[in-house]
Amino acid sequence: MVAVAGPGDVVGVPALRIARLLAAARGQEDGVAEVRVLAPVRGVVEGTRWRVVDTDGPGVSTELAGVDVLVWVATCTDLAQALVHRSADRRAALLRTGRALTLAASAAGVGHVLVVTSAEVFGALPDNEVPLPDDAPVRAVIDDGFVGDLLAVEALVEESREHHPDVRFTLVRPAALVGAGIDTALTRYFEAPRLLSIKTGSPAWQLCHVDDLASGVLCAVTGDVVPAGAVTVGSEGSLTLTEVESLTAMRRIEVSETTATNLATQLHRVGVLPVPASELAYVAHPWVVGSATLRARGWHPAYDNGTCLGVLLDAIGGRHAVAGRRVDRRDAAFGAASAAVALGATAALLRRARRH
Rank of each mutant, 00 (worst) to 15 (best):
G123A: 12
G43E: 14
P227H: 08
I182Y: 03
V44L: 14
T75C: 05
A92P: 03
V172C: 00
A281F: 06
P174V: 08
Y189A: 12
E236P: 04
A337K: 08
P203V: 10
G335A: 06
V288I: 11
S106C: 02
L218A: 01
A321C: 13
H300P: 04
V288G: 00
A348M: 08
G145Y: 08
M250T: 05
H285T: 15
L263P: 06
E191P: 02
L263C: 10
T48K: 04
V67S: 01
V226T: 15
V288N: 00
A345W: 11
V272M: 01
D56K: 11
D135S: 10
A264T: 12
P274G: 09
L83A: 13
A80P: 03
H268N: 12
G290Y: 01
T97Y: 04
L247A: 13
L103R: 07
V275R: 05
L267V: 07
L114P: 01
W50C: 09
V178K: 01
N128W: 03
V225I: 09
T222K: 00
D212Y: 06
G237K: 04
R326I: 12
D144E: 15
A74T: 06
H209E: 07
R139Y: 07
A3N: 03
V53D: 06
V178E: 03
W50I: 10
T240N: 06
A342G: 13
D314V: 04
V226W: 02
V52Q: 14
T75A: 15
G27K: 05
A292G: 08
L207S: 07
C219R: 10
A180M: 07
V84K: 11
F146I: 07
A140L: 08
R168L: 11
G59Q: 07
P193A: 07
V2W: 00
T261K: 10
G344S: 15
V231W: 01
G57I: 08
A33P: 05
T261L: 11
S197M: 11
H209I: 10
E236D: 14
I18W: 02
L70Q: 00
V289S: 00
G6Q: 07
L294E: 05
A185W: 13
R42F: 10
L343F: 14
R194T: 09
P301R: 03
S256P: 03
G59E: 11
T307R: 15
W205Q: 09
E120V: 12
G47T: 08
G290L: 00
P301K: 03
T307F: 10
R188C: 12
Q266M: 09
F334K: 08
V288L: 01
E29V: 13
L247V: 04
